[in-house]
Simulated scan of single mutants.
Amino acid sequence: MKMKRYLSLLLAGTLALALTACGGSAKTDPGTSNQPSTSDENWAPKENVTMIVSYKAGSGTDNTARVLAAYAEKYIGKPVIIENLEGGSGSIGWTALSQAAPDGYTLGFINLPNFNATISEGLATYTVDSFAPICNHVTETSVVLVKADSQFNTLEDLVKFAKDNPGKLKASTNGNRASNHIGAQVLATSAGFEYTDIPYGGTADQLLALRQGEVDFSVAKVADFASFTSEVKVLAVYNQERLEGYPDVPTMGELGYYDQWLGSSRCIVAPAGTPENVIKFYEDAFQKLMEDADYLKAAEAAGMETDYKNSADTAALIKQQQDFTESLADVWGD
Rank of each mutant, 00 (worst) to 15 (best):
M3F: 13
S8A: 11
G13F: 04
T14W: 15
T20G: 15
C22K: 14
S25F: 15
A26W: 15
T28Y: 12
S37K: 12
T38E: 13
D40S: 14
D40Q: 14
A44K: 11
M51Y: 13
I52W: 10
I52M: 10
K56G: 12
D62K: 08
N63Q: 06
T64N: 08
Y71T: 02
K74V: 03
K74G: 03
G77M: 04
G77V: 04
N84G: 12
G87I: 09
S89L: 02
G90E: 05
S91A: 12
S91G: 11
G93M: 09
W94Q: 10
A96T: 02
S98E: 07
A100C: 10
A100D: 08
P102L: 08
D103Y: 15
G104W: 03
Y105R: 07
T106Q: 06
F115C: 04
F115T: 03
T118S: 02
G122Y: 09
A124D: 06
C135P: 07
T139R: 05
E140W: 06
S142M: 14
V143F: 06
V144C: 05
S150K: 04
S150C: 05
N153T: 10
L155H: 01
D164Y: 02
G167T: 08
G167Q: 08
K168P: 00
K168V: 11
A171E: 03
A171H: 05
S172H: 09
T173H: 13
Q185F: 14
L187G: 07
A188S: 05
T189R: 15
D197E: 07
D197L: 03
P199F: 08
Y200W: 08
T203K: 05
L207P: 00
L207M: 07
L208S: 12
L208G: 07
A209G: 01
L210F: 03
R211M: 10
Q212A: 13
V215M: 12
D216H: 02
F217Q: 04
S218P: 00
A220Y: 07
F225C: 00
T229H: 06
S230Q: 12
K233L: 01
R242Y: 05
P247I: 09
M252D: 00
G253Q: 02
E254T: 02
L255S: 06
G263E: 01
G263M: 02
S265R: 03
R266M: 12
V269G: 01
A270E: 04
P275Q: 01
E276L: 02
E283F: 07
F286D: 08
L289G: 00
L289C: 01
E291T: 12
G303A: 15
T306E: 13
N310W: 05
A312M: 15
A315D: 15
I318Y: 08
T325P: 12
S327R: 14
D330V: 14
V331K: 08
W332R: 05
